[in-house]
């Protein structure tokens, strides 16, 4: 009668991009996994660090330039102010759909038991310390540590 995953199913999601449109897929996948009774780990690396950085999480942008799906010519999409305009429009649309903000999504993930990790190498590259990150981040670990943690998990790269 039950089809909720009773096995020890795990997903390990690697978030490597920091755009608003790039943050949601990883966060929603992780949340959906938790809602389906699947263990979830999220590893934030490179630009993905912005998603869990206190000063950046509320100001993630949408990059239209070079995005064929944006429907906007790259010449125009690259103009100053376009990306923040796009981010604003996307935020508005998400609000209409009652999607939680990125910050709220991370809180929900933390409360639902998903584990969030920051990449040590990326932290060094971007000169960030643990204090710059959101409190929901469990630890700063290396890619090798992440593999150990996510032993037996399905890995999703976003």
């Amino acid at each position: 009668m039950s089809n909720i995953a009773t096995s020890k199913r795990k997903v390990a999601i690697i978030a490597s991009h920091g755009g608003l449109d790039e943050a949601y897929p990883s966060l929603i996948l992780a949340n959906a996994a938790r809602q389906s009774g699947i263990e979830a780990f999220v590893f934030f690396t490179f630009w993905g660090l912005d998603i869990i950085t206190e000063s950046k999480v509320d100001h993630l942008h949408v990059n239209l330039a070079g995005n064929a799906s944006s429907g906007m010519p790259t010449m125009i999409a690259g103009l100053p102010g376009m990306e923040s305009l796009a981010a604003k429009m996307m935020r508005k649309q998400m609000e209409e759909l009652e999607l939680p903000s990125v910050r709220e999504m991370l809180q929900i993930l933390d409360e639902s038991g998903a584990e969030l990790y920051a990449c040590e190498l990326a932290m060094k590259m971007f000169k960030r310390s643990k204090e710059d990150l959101l409190p929901q981040v469990k630890d700063v670990i290396t890619a090798g540590d992440f593999y150990d943690l996510a032993d037996g998990a399905q890995i999703i790269f976003t």
């Binding site: 938790r34 809602q35 009774g37 939680p100 809180q107 929900i108 409360e111 639902s112 038991g113």
Partner: peptide
């Protein structure tokens, strides 16, 4: 969904996962 339940009942997400483990 979970968000609607937590917002309407005041039960936190964490407690909800404790009350009804797994999904």
């Amino acid at each position: 969904n979970i968000r609607r339940i937590t917002q309407a009942t005041g039960v936190t997400t964490k407690d909800l996962y404790t009350l009804f483990p797994k999904a």
